[in-house]
């Protein structure tokens, strides 16, 4: 006779865990596509800057390899999506809504990321960096400003009102609290070390990314641990 405690992990729970892993891999694959697109753009920009002529066999091989990896990742996303769909997993209402919004935001973010990668705006002055603050076209700047300043807050408001449950809400609050403390203490530390000639001048971009990253990590840990 099966013990009650042994029965508490149902097949459906195992299936849910597998689908969680599949979603994670789909996300990583999407990020991989954006990064490789950026690499292709960077490679072609570098050739242009050096005034190289037509593509050589080596260039075609390298670009072909990048394209092949993109195709493999795209196939992996499609396959994982099909497997998730076919699993017939039961998903609570909030999570269904959550998944739809994540897919929407993922596609939206992917388009922005791809645009940035393909237009070479992720690189400033030949210095590839996610913290680049080089110039970009006014149109692209406006599109990104509207996306981050108008679209994202509207989605976030809806998210917190209709999707987030109390456990995730607590995870968000813990993340925000630790992130704001990291910012409050980290920014003046950097400022003092700059005044002491130990570090370069404080820059808001890495501080912003640090704050967002800490909030994200704490939220993830609190929600999924």
């Amino acid at each position: 006779m099966t013990n009650l405690k042994e029965r508490t992990m149902t097949d459906a729970d195992n299936m849910a865990n597998n689908n969680g892993l599949r979603r994670l891999w789909m996300m990583f694959s999407g990020i991989g596509i954006i990064m490789i697109s950026g690499a292709i753009s960077g490679y072609l920009s570098q050739r242009d800057a050096q005034g190289d002529g037509p593509l050589t066999t080596l260039d075609v091989s390298i670009l072909g390899l990048f394209a092949a990896v993109i195709l493999v990742l795209a196939f992996a996303i499609w396959r994982l999506f099909q497997q998730t769909k076919q699993s017939g997993e039961r998903v609570p209402r909030r999570e269904r809504l959550n998944n739809r919004i994540i897919w929407g935001c993922g596609i939206f973010g992917g388009i922005i990321g791809l645009t940035l990668a393909l237009t070479g705006n992720m690189e400033a002055a030949n210095e590839p960096s996610p913290f680049a603050s080089g110039p970009m076209s006014p149109m692209l700047a406006l599109i990104l400003a509207v996306a981050i300043g108008v679209v994202l807050p509207a989605i976030t408001f809806y998210w917190h009102k209709h999707v987030v449950d109390e456990q995730e809400d607590a995870a968000y609050r813990a993340g925000a609290l630790i992130a704001i403390y990291a910012f409050w203490f980290g920014a003046p530390v950097w400022w003092f070390l700059w005044r002491g000639g130990i570090l370069p001048q404080p820059d808001g971009v890495p501080l912003y990314f640090m704050t967002a990253f800490i909030a994200l990590i704490v939220w993830f840990w609190k929600k999924y641990r």
């Binding site: 149902t10 459906a12 729970d13 849910a16 039961r90 209402r93 909030r94 959550n98 456990q167 999924y224």
Partner: peptide
């Protein structure tokens, strides 16, 4: 014989909750 998802549906919370 409820899964975490079943209970989540009844309580209107996520499986993680």
């Amino acid at each position: 014989s409820w899964s975490q998802a079943d209970l989540g549906e009844h309580l209107d919370v996520s499986r993680q909750a």
